[in-house]
């Protein structure tokens, strides 16, 4: 059961502000999708190895050789806000 409390917790983990009817609708949607997903419980997977990579590729490396990155102009071309060669964000209070 997806409660309002669960939606609240998950949305806070996902840093997604939800409120009012939107939160209620999402709770219902999640409930429906998870209900559908529950069909996986019918399978016995105790001895099955999980697949996180579909191809059997291993050991892909890069050599430790430097290459040029972005110029300052490129690095800030998309910046929302910048100051002193840095990306500017609201002050973080520890």
């Amino acid at each position: 059961m997806i409660t309002a409390e669960t939606v609240n917790y998950i949305s806070s983990l996902a840093r997604l502000h939800l409120e009012g009817p939107e939160a209620v609708k999402l709770a219902g949607d999640l409930e429906a999708i998870l209900h559908y997903a529950a069909k996986l419980n019918a399978l016995d997977v105790a001895s099955v190895t999980p697949t996180s990579h579909v191809l059997n590729v291993e050991n892909v490396f890069r050599d430790d050789v430097p290459a040029p990155g972005l110029t300052p102009e490129q690095a800030f071309s998309f910046a929302i806000e910048s100051q002193d060669n840095a990306y500017k964000v609201p002050r973080i209070i520890e």
């Binding site: 399978l43 997977v45 099955v48 999980p50 697949t51 996180s52």
Partner: peptide
């Protein structure tokens, strides 16, 4: 569980 079922599908 889904990753395991993925194995079965594969």
């Amino acid at each position: 569980r889904a990753q395991k079922v993925r194995t079965l599908i594969k």
